[in-house]
Write a protein that binds this DNA or RNA. Structure first.
Ligand SMILES: [Mn+2]
Ligand SMILES: [Mn+2]
Ligand SMILES: [Zn+2]
Ligand SMILES: [Zn+2]
Lengths: 147, 147
DNA sequence: TATTACATTGTAATTCTTACAATTAATTTT
DNA sequence: AAAATTAATTGTAAGAATTACAATGTAATA
């Protein structure tokens, strides 16, 4: 069994332990998320599945992504004007985003606990999370790829 | 002369050195930004000025905020679903955001150059910036205020 | 003053997302 | 297995934020 399939199965099991029913659409959306290993938008998922589900509504994609978020098997990455992207890797990690082509690549970094602590100290806030992203250009876009 | 007025004057001078003309609407938007010292939305600015400029269009607010961004005297803070906020402090700083009431408070932290360097190293991206925000609840919202 | 360039206004269009009511499907009860 | 209940899907309308556009207005320049 592939890595992706294994994690997909875990997600399905997580859903089973709630009142959330498994449906063909739901399964397909999850399957797409876990196999793509990218960070697709709702519309990308919708378009990718319209061959298999010609009658599926875009509302179904949004509905289910919300359900998945609530259960905790998907995270939403929000951006300003552009549409949200969805990440089926819910363990802590950060993203590097290409300003040219929009590509998103995961990377890990030992927590920024100090930043949270300092913010708490200087502002008096009760701090519970942070968001961090790095921007730049990917190897394909800055012409530094060997060819 | 107050601090805010001093910085407002600098912004006006910065505009003078370009082809950007000073208009009453422009001046009022800048004045509001520099005096409020908050991080208002386009609509908040629009509403705050409609007494003084009953005929001002919301498009004018957006147009001018774009101009100010291009000149470099204003920064846009983008969020997922919610509307953008605008910051007339363009020097490097981070924000703590209250999840309850939306309040945004500035704080400083010695640059996260290491994070950028690591991201570059592990992803091969040409890195040029990052975004970081801390989330929590403000003293007013978490009931820890003396009263 | 005439010309030109830039700015404002009002409104329509666009994009992403959610709301809603009707229909369909899955689960539970009988 | 049939009936009753509950949840999910669908199609479309509505919402909110932002931008596009054409007409009008104002400032700078010749
Ligand atoms: Mn990711
Ligand atoms: Mn700020
Ligand atoms: Zn790229
Ligand atoms: Zn608060």
């Amino acid at each position: 069994m592939t890595m992706a399939n294994e994690r997909l199965q875990e997600a399905i099991d997580a859903l089973k332990s709630t009142k959330v029913r498994m449906t063909p659409q739901r399964h397909a959306i999850l399957e797409y998320l876990y196999n793509s290993m990218s960070h697709p938008t709702a519309d990308e998922i919708y378009k990718a599945l319209e061959g298999k589900f010609p009658n599926m509504s875009v509302a179904t994609v949004y509905n289910n992504l919300r359900v998945f978020k609530e259960v905790g098997i998907v995270k939403e990455l929000t951006y300003g004007d552009a549409s949200s992207r969805f990440d089926c890797v819910t363990t802590d990690h950060y993203h590097v985003i290409c300003s040219e082509c929009g590509k998103i690549v995961d990377f890990h970094y030992p927590g920024l606990n100090e930043v949270e602590a300092l913010a708490k100290h200087v502002t008096g806030f009760q701090v519970n999370s942070h968001r961090m992203e790095v921007y730049g250009t990917c190897p394909e876009c800055n012409g530094s790829m060997p060819h």
